[in-house]
Amino acid sequence: MKPSIFKNRRVGIILAALFYAALGFFLYKAASKINYTWKWDMIPKYFVYEKKIPLTSPCDGKLEIEGNKAVIICEDGKKYTYSLEGYKLEFENGEFVYEDDEIAYKIKLEPGPFLLGLWVTIKISLISMFFAFLIGLIIAIMRLSGIPAFDYIGSVYVTIIRGTPLLVQLFIFYFIVATIFDLPRFWAGVMSLSIFYGAYIAEILRGAIQSIDKGQHEAAKSLGFNSFQRMWYIILPQALRKALPALVGELISLIKDSSLVSIISITDLTKVGREIVANTFSPFETWLTVAALYLMLTSVLSFIGHKLEKRMKAKGGI
């Protein structure tokens, strides 16, 4: 019997593509029903825009062009020289100019709000990832230290953080902690993301460390490694490999949840989206673009995760 064509991979891809194309078309049609006018062409200028930089005359006088330089001889006899490198001239040699006349201009590309917001999101995510990992590692090791006080400190932290909403924690950090310690809002955002994800990463790392075979500890002990060396050279490298897929998952969530910081007025990608919608009244295009940018960030991260995993597989399993 021939296998059903629905089991074929290529057919599957085509069907899935058709499904989403149909869904997109349906949404598009639905949007035109409510008389939504699509203005995709306004999106690019929110990524980069051309900024005009004018060169103006400081006085009334005469303009003389000498090679690549503009010289203005003012009526009071003063002379000003400007380089015309990259400028487009709007007057001719020997013409008379008045004060504040635009003699020349040049066009500079400036990053628009989408790029600036994206950069803030990347920055806040990367810094928070670093601290979340650090906190997670420290808490995991504290909980496994065999010292009850450390274990309890860690478990209370994990319980509180995992038992309350991130949004509420963000408010606590912004309105209470940041106010008391006079922290900039950016760092309040970083702190709450780090502390929130630190708790989850701690639990992942704790599980991974515990899953390492007892024989590994024993072999390391029998060779004379002290407890720090055992952890650092033997247990942690193996635990990190095991935890990698779960860690990447948490870091992807962190990127997505970083959009919450827009609520405390950090100008991240989401906040920028809101501002652009307010200016353009084009919520469809704007939010679809914002979503695509987040998807790009998370895809890059999961791609890196897959690459790392593959490389470790090549290096003898675990």
């Binding site: 024989g215 024993e218 072999a219 002990k221 060779l223 193996q238």
Partner: peptide
Amino acid sequence: INKLRQEVGMVFQHFNLFPHLT
């Protein structure tokens, strides 16, 4: 004890090699 263990080697039933190292 770590110093003393350097003088007492041990070979295990299940080898316990470090799988992440060559």
